[in-house]
Design a protein around this nucleic acid. Sequence first.
DNA 1: ACTGGCGGGACGTCCCGTTGAT
DNA 2: ATCAACGGGACGTCCCGCCAGT
Lengths: 186, 186, 186, 186
Amino acid sequence: VPKVTPEHRDARRRQILDGARRAFGRFGYEAATVPRLEEETGLSRGAIFSYYPSKLDLFLALAEEDQARLLEVWIEGGFDALVREVVARPEWIGVYLDVPRMLRADPALRDRWRAFNPLGQERLASRIEALRSAGEIRSDVGLETIGKFLGAVYDGICVHLGAGFDVDVDGTLELVRAALAPPAVR
Amino acid sequence: VPKVTPEHRDARRRQILDGARRAFGRFGYEAATVPRLEEETGLSRGAIFSYYPSKLDLFLALAEEDQARLLEVWIEGGFDALVREVVARPEWIGVYLDVPRMLRADPALRDRWRAFNPLGQERLASRIEALRSAGEIRSDVGLETIGKFLGAVYDGICVHLGAGFDVDVDGTLELVRAALAPPAVR
Amino acid sequence: VPKVTPEHRDARRRQILDGARRAFGRFGYEAATVPRLEEETGLSRGAIFSYYPSKLDLFLALAEEDQARLLEVWIEGGFDALVREVVARPEWIGVYLDVPRMLRADPALRDRWRAFNPLGQERLASRIEALRSAGEIRSDVGLETIGKFLGAVYDGICVHLGAGFDVDVDGTLELVRAALAPPAVR
Amino acid sequence: VPKVTPEHRDARRRQILDGARRAFGRFGYEAATVPRLEEETGLSRGAIFSYYPSKLDLFLALAEEDQARLLEVWIEGGFDALVREVVARPEWIGVYLDVPRMLRADPALRDRWRAFNPLGQERLASRIEALRSAGEIRSDVGLETIGKFLGAVYDGICVHLGAGFDVDVDGTLELVRAALAPPAVR
DNA sequence: ACTGGCGGGACGTCCCGTTGAT
DNA sequence: ATCAACGGGACGTCCCGCCAGT
């Protein structure tokens, strides 16, 4: 049984994840066939499947990794930063776009996805809460509503980006700001 | 001398479209296999493929039909009506969700999709323009920006619905309204 | 029950046979699909299959018709005429080329083919016999051998023509003549 | 690091070629379905198509192998040896018979086939030339004509063999000899 | 008499994941 | 640890022929 340093394992994992993202992003989940994954990662089936038990698991690992990273961007830099991030790296959208479709057909997956990264979600909620307390966003609508609204806008932008349509980042962010602005005297 | 009446053909077409929508909606484009299409439509391959030359053509016929119908709802009833329509019939979402993913991988398809129903798109633009002229929505941002914003929100809602997440219709619409409201004295 | 004159039936039969020959000749038996037969004949499945019970039967009718005609040419005009005939109408070769392949896989068909047109075969044998008696061809080899030799040359020419290779008609016929010439003083 | 030794690969290749020849020979190209190829080779689709990218490629590999071998027999042993070889192994005929039929419908394939093994064709031409110089065959007809004549006779014999008809080897070869004999005083 | 809708099966291809070899 | 050979199943397509309908 050959042995290998943990560093090597991590590097391989990264190599697989990076190549897989390119493949999934370019072709979509089903069209990113194992041969294409091999090509993009530069590794063979054997190697890939020794790190991830199936194509689906590899895909989900990628999706959760992105999810965590983007949540972090949101928490750290706010919604603007989140949107600018995805616009700046549209090649990452591919993976994200496939997720909801898979959730649709597989309730078990839906639960898994929902339960992922509860800590991050909580931190995000706290941050929005803080903004609200500071009077920067309106407090006459529920936190949940704001979260869902932002989520929808974000997902919508991703869909447009993913489909190759132009996105008006500044304009959209301006409208989002207006939507969340505390009510003024009218 | 055709073998069947045009009425029969139309009925069959509907039967195929309806069954196919169920199949595509439930499973997604690739997982809606031909046997599943047969099962849902109650017809055999021979019948289905005598009306549509391929699975993709059937899918696109469905997608364009929905697209036209929803655009009509939007034009006639406004954005609220559009959102309430998709929320009321979430089983129609499935087909819609697969479209952008397919556009991503196929530029030719993207062009075809974009060029579809130009008249409807124009009519929608006119309507928004009219609302703006009437002072019901703000005129300090471009028409294009408003269209893209609404499109994004709508698509985002579809993604959430499609993925099986709850959607806060009233709250979201309220925020959209705020986003588009003409600026007041602050 | 509609009625039709025998003339009409014969005309339809010709129409089907002629179209089918074009299709079989151009594409070969398996690639000459029923839709292609429909196209070439200008008739529908129903019409075609009401005159011939299956694609194979239609093909064999055609093959036997050609076989009979070519045998007649051979009997009437000799081997030279036969060869010149097939060279002049290479589009007829297609059907002929598929026959031996089908015989190979189907012994029953082989018997049917062999038993076809015994009268013609006999007449041909008589003719060669007569030539031999007249001293025009050598009599030191069996009639059977001569027949098989000529058959092989003819089939070989057909194969070459069918494959699209050039055929040296005059040269080949000259060599055949030499092969069959009565032995001279050497 | 390959999984198997080159010897293993060669053995597998042979196993596939041999089984495929049986299948193609018995049923013909189109009727030699993939399941039948699996059965004859004793291997699965996965194995077969990992050695040959498609059924057509497998078939052509076989055809070219035979072509090369038989050309060698012709060059080394003369036309007699060639004919005796195919008569002795009639199961090899099947593959050979399908080739011209495929060439007929596919000009690209025709070019590929023609360009195959030019060295062998040249060596054969030299050999016949040498025989002619030595006075063993007539020199009053072109080399090309002789080649085409022999090719036609050979192909005709193959057709007969393939179709399951008897072939009179000795008689036919005797006639071929007469055809090519130098002209004597008459 | 003729049409063409339709059933149902078979096609070649390609897929994913296991496994035995290195 | 990594490889590629391989099994076996599923895919969309297209085929042929039957027969209901005109």
